[in-house]
Every structure is written in C-alpha cells, then in structure tokens.
Simulated assay, not measured.
Amino acid sequence: MQSLQFTTESSSNGMLERDFLMGDVPGVLWSSASGAERAPLVLMGHGGGAHKRHPAMLGRAKSLVAGCGFHVAVLDAPGHGDRPRTAYDEREIAELRKAQAAGEPEAPIVVRYNARLAELAVPEWRATLDALQMLPEIGADGPVGYVGMAMGTALGVPLVAAEPRIKAAVLGMMWPDALFDAARQITVPIEFVLQWDDERVPREAGLALFDAFASKEKSLHANAGDHFGFPMFEVDSSVRFLARHLGRPVTQQS
C-alpha cells in the first residue's frame, strides 16, 4: 500500500493545514489547530478547472473545522491543480472551450470527460482514505463524509457508491447521464443542492439525479439563481447536515 507523506505544515486562525502526497497525488488536510481529540473526516471534491486550494474549498474547510472540529481532506483531481495535464486532458478541454465559444451544448463533453476522471480519481481517493485513517487523530473506525459540487459530484457519486466508509454526502449541480447507475447504489443520507435557474445544468437534469439516489433520507435544496450564484448559507446547511450524520455537535457557524 502506498504511504501518505506530509510535505509542509502551517497554522492560522485556529486551523492546521498540512500538504501531503499520496504517491504522486497532491492533497491537503485541514484540522483544528488544537488537536484535542479524535474527530470525523470529511472528503471534499473540487469543481472543474479548480484545485484543492480553490477559495470554495478553503471556505468550506474553515466552516467544517470551526463548526464541528472535522478533519477535511481535498485531492487535486487528475489534470487539475498541481497535477500535469495529459494529451487527453488537453483535447477534452479544447473541445469544451470550442463548444462554449460556439454556444453549443457542453454537457456531452463534460459528462464524458468527468466520467474518465472519476475512473482515475475513485481509486486514488480510496487509497488516500486508507492512509488518512491510519492517523491517530482520525482512526479506522471514525465516520466519513463527502462534499462536492459540479465536478465534485461527478467524481463523488461513484466514490460514495463504491466506498462503504462514507456515511453521508452533500452533492449537486451536475448532469446525471453517467451517474445514474452509481446513484441507484447509494443509500446513505444525501443533501442535494441545485440552482433553479442554472444555465449550465438544467433543473430537470438535477432533479433526475436527485430522484435516482436510493437513500431513504435525502433532501433537496433548490435555490433561485444561476450556476455561479450558489448561496453561501448552503455551506452552513452542509455543516449541520454532516454534524448530524457523523455525530458531532455544531459549535460555531460562519
């Protein structure tokens, strides 16, 4: 089994930040700087074209660490962040930009590309989870959650379906085409977010994915606004949702 290697460490505003490498896959682990007790782990998937330290990732991490003392881990997805792009990545991104410039549908390209990234990322995430659970402050018996919007959902749905250690997930804003089979295998509690006026992922597509989850407990959060108008109060909602299902009290809200 590959080992996890911490490469840098820093602390600010009560949050400890540790960069790591899992093999050649870069990631970051955020934790409470107090390190007082064992706490659950939340895995986060970033959006397309973003990276592990994107402001959305850092903002969510701060809310999860400050709000519940969670440990929060993010990996750079294949072809993103500090990971080199392959020739395949470059071709798919060029096709996407061409379609966007011409006003043509982008869904077929994004769905195809993200499905390929998921094939690569799910094994990486599972190996990283193995390694993170060897840390005494996380432990092998602690509950695990997942959060990911857009591409984070495209990678997260197959991960949650494959990984029984994940006990609850926050997902949303992604086309369902390549995700139906995996979604039907998911029975853990789901909080699902969609933008009612999303110009990229139509509401009908989001509703179809929500409907596909086999979870007995699943909640739909539909907000007015476009794809990039994601309301920040949904971050607080996700903290409360994960706290409830991973057994943590909410001590602070942003």
Rank of each mutant, 00 (worst) to 15 (best):
A212N: 15
D236P: 09
D198Q: 07
S237W: 13
G142F: 09
E217N: 13
L155W: 02
G142P: 12
V170F: 01
W175V: 12
L220E: 04
S238K: 05
G139D: 12
T153M: 02
P143M: 05
S215T: 03
E137N: 08
R244S: 14
L194I: 11
Y146K: 03
S219V: 13
S237M: 12
F241Y: 08
D236Y: 11
G225S: 10
D177R: 01
Q133G: 13
V144I: 09
R240K: 10
Y146W: 00
L242P: 12
I138F: 05
R165F: 11
A169K: 01
I186G: 02
S238G: 02
E217S: 08
I166Q: 05
T187V: 07
A224K: 13
G206D: 13
V188S: 00
M173H: 06
L159Q: 00
G172H: 01
A140T: 14
T187W: 01
F241T: 06
L132M: 06
P136L: 04
Q185N: 09
P143Y: 01
V239E: 01
F210I: 01
I138A: 11
N223H: 15
W196Y: 13
I166R: 02
G206N: 13
I190V: 00
A178F: 10
I138L: 05
L155N: 03
A178I: 11
S237I: 14
A154V: 10
M151I: 03
D198N: 07
M134G: 15
R126N: 12
F228A: 14
E137I: 10
D211G: 13
A183S: 06
L194T: 14
D211L: 02
L220Y: 08
G139T: 06
V201T: 07
V193T: 14
V239D: 00
I166H: 01
A140N: 13
R165W: 06
D198Y: 05
G206E: 11
L155H: 02
F213W: 04
P164L: 10
K167A: 10
G139A: 07
A169Q: 03
E191K: 06
A168D: 03
E163A: 03
G156K: 00
M134K: 15
M151H: 10
A183L: 07
S237A: 15
P202Q: 01
L155G: 02
H227K: 04
G172Y: 05
P189F: 07
S219L: 11
R240V: 15
D130K: 08
P164S: 09
V235C: 08
H221A: 15
G172C: 01
D226C: 09
F230H: 05
N223A: 14
E217K: 00
A169T: 04
G172N: 02
A205Y: 06
S219Y: 13
Q185T: 07
T128F: 12
F228M: 14
P143R: 00
M151E: 11
F210H: 05
P136Q: 02
Q133Y: 08
A127H: 04
S237C: 11
M151N: 07
D211R: 05
T153F: 02
D236Q: 12
L155K: 10
A127L: 09
V157E: 09
M174C: 08
P136I: 03
W125V: 06
